[in-house]
């Protein structure tokens, strides 16, 4: 299937998902397939014992177990009832948890926002995942999940993904933990959770990632940053307004204070990285100035996505 099917473009944002973008996504999918066959692909098998064909283990019979799974040969030898366990191969669910809060919509240069970049990267990675027969769902969040999408499968669903991404409503106050908590209450199927955000959350990221891990998800963190905010040459008396909370604070911005702000910004990146490593998740910090295909390539290189 080609991604540029003209009949499917209705309801899709042209400024983000134009034909050039779709062509580039196709190239990235091919590249991803090649990278997967070269051995960089990681096997993802369910540890759940089910109806697979590959024997995995035995376990003792307990009343209620399906008698069809009893290893009668073993019973004959040992006179003990044991069940044959098979490893079940299943589809990988990939969730793109996209931060749609107000801070992601700021565009100091008047062009692309972090949310735009997040949507583009999510679209590209979705196509690749769909091509890999994985299930894909887009989960926009701010302080809660607005309308959770059921995972879809197959490349034919790519335009549905694009429509969902085009319809992501921007705005809201960031509360990652509360949003994840609300989402997990919908009992999504565990899988790969790609969290894309600027992580401007006063509560931090650690608890939210631990929550995902606890529920069986494999988190992957994509930290988007916009460094143009650090390069402002405005000085003097300022009233800085938090774009999400509206909180105002009066400061006298001096070069020294700006330098300290930059250091604090870098420190926030380190904190995100530390929170990710604590749960064994991969973390990438990507600046807004980096093209989306480069971002996708960096995700591939980091590993863990192509399953």
């Amino acid at each position: 299937m080609s991604v540029d099917a003209p009949s499917s473009h209705e309801g899709i944002r042209d400024d983000l998902f134009d034909p050039a973008f779709l062509g580039r996504v196709e190239q990235l999918a091919l590249l991803a397939r090649r990278m997967a066959s070269s051995g960089t692909r990681a096997n993802r098998r369910s540890r759940i014992v089910g109806s697979g064909i590959e024997f995995a283990d035995h376990r003792a019979y307990t009343p209620g177990d399906d008698l069809r799974n009893v290893d009668w040969k073993l019973f004959a030898r040992t006179e003990r009832l044991n069940l044959r366990l098979y490893e079940e191969e299943e589809d990988l669910s990939v969730y793109f948890l996209i931060d749609r809060s107000t801070s992601m919509t700021m565009a100091p240069d008047g062009e692309k926002t972090l949310l735009d970049r997040a949507l583009q990267v999510s679209a590209a990675l979705s196509y690749i995942a769909l091509s890999n027969l994985d299930r894909v769902a887009v989960v926009p969040f701010a302080d809660k999940i607005a309308a959770p999408m059921r995972p879809v499968r197959g490349r034919a669903q790519f335009f549905k993904i694009l429509r969902v991404l085009s319809d992501v409503p921007p705005g809201g106050q960031t509360d990652i933990q509360a949003a994840f908590d609300g989402w997990l209450r919908t009992r999504p199927r565990p899988g790969l959770a790609v969290v894309i955000s600027d992580f401007f959350d006063a509560k931090g990221l650690g608890d939210a990632l631990r929550l995902l891990t606890y529920r069986g998800f494999e988190p992957m963190v994509l930290h988007l940053v916009d460094r143009t905010l650090l390069d402002a040459d405005v000085q003097g008396d300022l009233a800085i307004v938090d774009c999400e909370t509206g909180e105002t604070r009066e400061i006298v911005l001096t070069p020294q204070l700006l330098s300290r702000y930059r250091a604090a910004f870098e420190s926030l990146g380190h904190e995100v990285q530390r929170a990710a490593s604590e749960v064994g998740a991969r973390c990438l910090q990507v600046d807004l100035s980096v093209p989306f295909d480069d971002v996708v390539m960096r995700v591939f290189r980091a590993g863990g996505f192509l399953g």
């Binding site: 700021m106 401007f200 916009d226 405005v234 800085i240 307004v241 009066e250 400061i251 910004f265």
Partner: peptide, 12 residues
């Protein structure tokens, strides 16, 4: 005072 909107007041 000039009002400047910032993405994350907590950092400031």
């Amino acid at each position: 005072q000039r009002r400047v909107e910032v993405p994350f007041g907590g950092l400031w």
